[in-house]
Design a protein around this nucleic acid. Sequence first.
DNA 1: CTGAAAGCGCTAACAT
DNA 2: ATGTTAGCGCTTTCAG
Lengths: 331, 331
Amino acid sequence: MVKPTMDDVARRAGVSRALVSLVMHESEKVSDRSRIAVLEAADALGYRPNLSARHLASKRTRTFGLLINDLHNPYFPSVADGIKRSADSHGYRLLLNSAFLNERDERAALEGFVDHNVDGVILTGTKVPPSFIEQIADAVPVVVVSRPMRSKRVDTINNDDRLGARLVVDHLVELGHRDICHLDGGRGAGGSQRRAGYEAAMRAHGLEPHVVPAAFTEAAGARAAANALSGGRRVTAIFAGNDLSAVGALDVIDDAGLAVPGDISLVGYDNTFVAALRHIDLTTVDQGRECLGELAVRALLERIEEGRTVATHQVTPPTLVARGTTAPPPG
Amino acid sequence: MVKPTMDDVARRAGVSRALVSLVMHESEKVSDRSRIAVLEAADALGYRPNLSARHLASKRTRTFGLLINDLHNPYFPSVADGIKRSADSHGYRLLLNSAFLNERDERAALEGFVDHNVDGVILTGTKVPPSFIEQIADAVPVVVVSRPMRSKRVDTINNDDRLGARLVVDHLVELGHRDICHLDGGRGAGGSQRRAGYEAAMRAHGLEPHVVPAAFTEAAGARAAANALSGGRRVTAIFAGNDLSAVGALDVIDDAGLAVPGDISLVGYDNTFVAALRHIDLTTVDQGRECLGELAVRALLERIEEGRTVATHQVTPPTLVARGTTAPPPG
DNA sequence: CTGAAAGCGCTAACAT
DNA sequence: ATGTTAGCGCTTTCAG
């Protein structure tokens, strides 16, 4: 079961190795006769080009490294989906890697991408420090999705998280809420922007911001909601940093015997499938995530194939998705 | 910013290339003096071994290909988690790939693994035909997780889905249900086993099986539940093939104005985080998924490092997790 | 313990 | 249109 090489194919087809290479790359300048001979030989032998050899010889891999921070957050698979579709359509394959929330693994994964000589790297929702990302960007084009960072070397694609947060606050204020608490996202993707947007919007309405530290997981949302409810300060609405922390909060609100939205309104962010479940029916913000992937791939291609060197920072507009967890405050 | 090669390091350290190679592999037979010189030179230059070159020269990649069918189903990230942890601890890296439910992409991904010369392949919840999997297994050790298949060449690690299904039926019968309908999983991971287990258990209780075709997604669960409810046949309990289809069913039951579990009991499978949400609180079956990953990696290692050649088929025991969606039937 | 040398399988000029 | 010929960066005998 030793794998046939290009030489085997060439010999069998009665041509040179270079010609086989041309055929494998669908070059135009090969006679039909040779092409067919090569294709038949390759087929008969079950030949498949060895990628390591190809990459070594060509310096191009037509591969993007995609690093996803947290596969458990349904938001990320969605953007990965868009990225994959887009990469596919441009003839690039993906090296997917997930760090499962661990920063050390993230660094290792990124270095692995470089070692593999990928042509580009897409980071989504990762926590490695910007300085490290820029270091990677010295070796290969990098685009960071869902994490704002101003950099001269790294491209970014982001939802306008500040605006999204403002939409949420406006929505709640319009319903009559004044005591709106925010469970923030810590260092999670877009967390600080959402927080800033929340604070600005609250002040714009003449309201005092009320931020409870959290993170983009269910468990963190639950803890933070518990803190918020027991904090002595009145709360009629909770704006969680993402859907996952919102459902965590939901559990705690349930346990406290409070009704949603009767006693308390709740909003998430990301519009994941969890928010859409009728049983949850969570008001949330949609990032238009499918398009993020398309933009990310395009950014990489511009650097690779068109030689762009100045960083681009793109922002997409969020939309509020009002569902059943928001209503006017009690009383 | 051209990457330094082993030659650069060797020159700078004043040694030969072979010695650098030895140092990079932490070989014992290098003098401390040389080792330090090499390490310092490598560090100063920012040297990182080129993986393509290494793989090409060595025929081993210390890499496993992991193919996940559907990243949107929260069950899979969990098993991926276990696999990653386990691979890490054995010094293997992972090439993760997801097909997002598409069979053509699955085949391409598997072929990509082979082209990359991975040392082993782990499939979870995939739909490619067994014959294709066996073909891949000719080139590299393969272990299939969460999909039973009897094969002489391919290892499998499975939860005992038949038993899991029986636990569900027993639980419902014990509560007094007799009209238990099953939304099956089609070709999804473990689908046919769960269905078979359901049918056998029903018959064992002297009950007539009632299977509605579905798949392991929310949308399919919703459609199937709608069919089940409008089918003319009495239904007091629904056993969905997995948690995702169960929440899809839940939406439909809600919409029909029926109460869970008052009017109808509902059970899922997989014990994903969605089932655990207090708002959902779904009775389900836990597969002990973390341990599946460990077993999968071990199976691969046995073939790679210990030369095992006969297939192993391991089965882990499921446990019922009774929550709030099951209760005695109405009346 | 260290160095020399022969590839691994493929690509990409350069010839013809 | 097709063949020749250098490498790509590393591993791995094999000598010394």
